[in-house]
Design a protein around this nucleic acid. Structure first.
Lengths: 116, 116
DNA sequence: GCCTCACATCAAAAAGTTTCGATGTGTCAA
DNA sequence: TTGACACATCGAAACTTTTTGATGTGAGGC
């Protein structure tokens, strides 16, 4: 799992910009068209379009065309994938847990002695 | 919850850089000193120091000084907070769900009619 | 004390992201 | 078929992040 750090970093980019978090917060309330998303942000139309592209590429947002409008909504699948990825990133790995170095003076366990 | 988007974006920055994901992956295997983290990355010592600072400020990593060495490890609390935040960001909000606009031609429900 | 090592900090350069205004594309209504 | 609208795309400017090499700080060994 999770060998492609570049891919994973790209997915996480959805969440590390203030405007994108505001957009996601709006989408929690249900599907919205771009023009309404724009009402609540202090950016121009082309910047919104740029952020929506990032959100869609990261997989957490889906879009639906409806005549001249585009509606955006949270993707349940994408959201589940993002949450699972984050859990994986932060879950200690049982097999290797407990090995540290630079032991003697501070009570660390030493794993191989090449440095501490 | 989650009114401070800037704060939240800052926390999520921990996860949106490839080198930081590699560092976190190493820390899943247990506490490590900076020199060993460095062995597995293609960056210099000062760049590692910069990334560690970001990881610590975001709360997902803790450090422990041991003589001249510094050991880093995942913070269980910080990790739990990050996961909870991401779940909050991606969880649809029951009360408002189901309201869309621009209805007629594509089967959308219309919430107030001011635009579609 | 003096030297070395581990890590932090700094300033500057390099790389990447976000914004803007202008322009392009497709849809709809008149 | 023309015009207006919604959104995407483009190139350039503004801004932020990341990297580098140099230097600072504090610990430990001699």
């Amino acid at each position: 799992m999770a060998y492609d750090y570049a891919e994973q970093a790209k997915m996480m980019k959805a969440f590390c910009d203030e405007n994108r978090l505001k957009i996601l917060a709006q989408l929690r309330g249900g599907e919205q068209c771009a023009c309404r998303l724009l009402d609540h942000l202090e950016i121009g139309q082309s910047a919104l379009s740029y952020h929506m592209k990032i959100l869609i590429e990261s997989g957490v947002v889906e879009s639906r065309e409806c005549g001249k409008w585009t509606h955006y909504r949270l993707s349940a699948q994408g959201s589940a994938r993002a949450i699972a990825a984050m859990q994986a990133i932060l879950t200690p790995n049982e097999r290797a847990e407990g090995k540290a170095r630079h032991g003697a003076s501070c009570g660390c366990a030493v794993s191989d002695g090449t440095r501490g």
